[in-house]
Every structure is written in structure tokens, then in C-alpha cells.
């Protein structure tokens, strides 16, 4: 395959972010990625460019400067509706060849995970999925991409030494979004779809936006989460009461979801959602690594478990040794009315 010489590689510069656009909005994960891209660009003395593809996105492009983008490439076209992976991939590959970015970051969402592998293959470059750590190797300028492997039991660090751009996806809520700085400005480049980009097109029959499906744990400030120790669907009823008392949402470990006690859209961990809440209360969750990777960047972690020695009890900020079926009702009595 096409490998690049040192001289070729030097032509590639700048850190790109592919914006996540859905429901006509730029999604917050884009800001998180721009924040990380800013750090990488500062370390490699380059710029942050964001590519926004969608319908009617031109007005939104400017909002990205505040998060650290120096340049925004806007491709505004009604055909870019998140369904035409084929067109979006062709556009991105063409832009990559034209502007030669050194790094391309994309959100590891349903859409990003379908789109970006197509781009990586067509652009002849390496791609690392679901990175939890990204940094620039000071020795050779390569992007060091760290991701969990084997269900999170091992962290692997990956690089693409001979290919550019170096591409990586990051799940929502893994990186922290920077505070916007409204005084920042930048440059907007407008690009459009060429006929050759749109040689293959899906016919759209229905697009359905559901409030139900949008149930997003990651928006909750407090999560009350249950595992095997919750013992059954009745136990989750107690957790739901707890959550509604504190204005939180209910999460679950894979064990509880696999047992059928609560739906998959509550699952937190490597095969579920990643969350970064202000307060995470783990009830009867032993803390298998694949669960921990989905919640350990929460600000404050509380564990309630009858077994004092589980990994979750060891890593929590506050560990309560007790029977959750006895302790939680008492907590509900203690919490002042909100």
C-alpha cells in the first residue's frame, strides 16, 4: 500500500475535527474534540480545522471558533443528512487530499463509526477507534492513540508511522469540552459537493426522530446505576425512586442488562454508553473494567455495596459498606425535599 516518505509526511499539517451534525445541530461532542485538537495543535505548533458537513450549517460554522478552531471548512448541502455515508466519505477524502491534514478526529457515534472507516480505507490511512487518550510524540510528531482493548482489561497505544493523516475516533463525553471564548475568530472556507462525489446515493424513505430514543444518559448530571447486586427489576424500581428524588437518571452495568432487569439504553460501559457525570452512584456494581471505562471520569463516584472489597468500592470517592436495600430507603428519608 501507499506509504509515505519523511518528506511526504512533512507536507501534512494541522489537526482536523469532523463535526458531528445531527437533528440540524452541531453536537457537543464536536466541542470536546475541538478542545482535544487544540491541545494537539499547540503541541505540534499547527492549527485546528473543523469540517462541518450538513444542510443549512453555514450559520453554525462560526460558533466553532470559540471552542478553539482556527478554520472551518463548511460543506452546506441538503444531501448531507447523515445518511449518505458514500457522499460524505468522498467529500472528506477529496478535502483530505486537497488540504493534507496531519490528524483527523471524528466522533465515535453511530454515524461516525460508519463514515470514518470508509474514509480511512479510501484515503489509505490508519484509523484507531474509541480512543481515550491522544497525544503527540515529542520525538517524531506521531499521534499516540490510546484505546481500551479486550473489554478494557488492557490499554493499547497505537500509531500510524508511515501514513497521513492519522485518524482516530473518540466517544462522546470522553474528552472535556473547553469553556467557549467568544472573542476568538477564524477563517471559513466554503466547499461544495462535486458530481463525482455523489455517484452513489441512498434513497431516503423515512427519517424518524424519537424523543424516546434520544434518552441520553450522558445528559444527566446525576446517575444512579445498578449492577448484579440490585438482584432484579424490583431493585431497579428502588433505584428509579432514588433517581427521581435527586433529579438523576438510572444507569446499569452489563450484568444487569444481560439479565434483562433493565433495557440496553441504560447500559454504561465499553459496550454501552460512556458518561461523565457530576455524581455517579454505583449500587451493587462490582466494577468490572469494561464498566469502569464507561464512567470513571465522573467527578464524584459513590459506591454502595455489601462487599467492601470490590474494585468499585476501592476506586470510589465515597464507599458505603451496607445492604443497598436498607441504605437507599434511609437515604431517601434523609434527603431534604428539593
Amino acid at each position: 500500500m501507499l506509504t509515505l516518505t519523511d518528506a511526504d509526511r512533512k507536507q501534512y499539517e494541522n489537526i482536523w475535527v469532523v463535526a458531528e451534525v445531527s437533528s440540524g445541530r452541531i453536537q457537543p461532542v464536536t466541542h470536546e474534540l475541538i478542545g482535544k485538537a487544540r491541545e494537539l495543535a499547540d503541541a505540534s505548533k499547527s492549527q485546528v480545522w473543523t469540517v462541518v458537513m450538513g444542510s443549512g450549517i453555514s450559520q453554525m460554522a462560526e460558533s466553532l471558533f470559540a471552542y478553539g478552531s482556527d478554520c472551518v471548512i463548511a460543506v452546506d448541502d441538503a444531501r448531507l443528512n447523515g445518511i449518505q455515508d458514500e457522499i460524505e466519505a468522498n467529500v472528506l477524502v477529496r478535502l483530505i487530499r486537497k488540504y493534507k491534514p496531519e490528524v483527523v478526529l471524528c466522533a465515535a457515534t453511530t454515524k461516525g463509526r460508519a463514515l470514518i472507516p470508509r474514509v480511512a480505507v479510501k484515503a489509505d490511512c490508519g484509523l484507531t477507534a474509541d480512543c481515550t487518550g491522544l497525544s503527540i510524540d515529542p520525538e517524531n510528531g506521531d499521534l499516540l492513540q490510546t484505546r481500551p482493548a479486550f473489554g478494557g482489561n488492557i490499554m493499547a497505544t497505537i500509531r500510524s508511522p508511515k501514513h497521513r493523516p492519522q485518524m482516530a475516533t473518540v466517544r462522546p463525553r470522553v474528552m472535556k469540552a473547553p469553556e467557549p471564548d467568544k472573542s476568538r475568530t477564524g477563517k471559513i472556507i466554503k466547499e461544495s459537493i462535486l458530481d463525482t462525489d455523489a455517484d452513489k446515493m441512498k434513497k431516503i424513505i423515512e427519517i424518524f426522530q424519537s424523543k424516546e430514543a434520544a434518552f441520553n444518559l450522558s445528559d444527566a448530571r446525576i446517575i444512579i446505576s445498578g449492577g448484579r447486586g440490585v438482584k432484579g427489576p424490583e431493585g431497579f424500581e428502588l433505584l428509579k425512586r432514588f433517581a427521581s428524588k435527586v433529579g438523576g437518571a438510572v444507569g446499569a452495568s452489563r450484568a444487569a442488562v444481560d439479565a434483562g432487569w433493565i433495557g440496553y439504553n441504560h447500559q454504561i460501559g465499553q459496550t454501552g454508553q460512556t458518561v461523565q457525570t457530576t455524581l455517579y452512584i454505583a449500587c451493587g456494581i462490582s466494577g468490572q473494567i469494561q464498566h469502569l471505562v464507561g464512567m470513571q471520569s465522573s467527578d464524584v463516584i459513590v459506591a454502595i455495596d455489601i462487599n467492601p472489597d470490590t474494585p468499585m468500592m476501592q476506586m470510589a470517592d465515597i464507599a458505603i459498606v451496607g445492604d443497598l436495600f436498607e441504605v437507599i430507603p434511609e437515604i431517601l428519608n434523609e434527603i431534604p425535599k428539593l
Binding site: 445531527s22 424518524f208 424519537s210
Partner: peptide, 9 residues
């Protein structure tokens, strides 16, 4: 997907 579903040909 995160926001609902789509059907396409």
C-alpha cells in the same frame, strides 16, 4: 441511531 431511526434504500 442516537436520535431515532431511518429507513433507506
Amino acid at each position: 441511531h442516537e436520535e431515532g431511526h431511518d429507513i433507506c434504500q
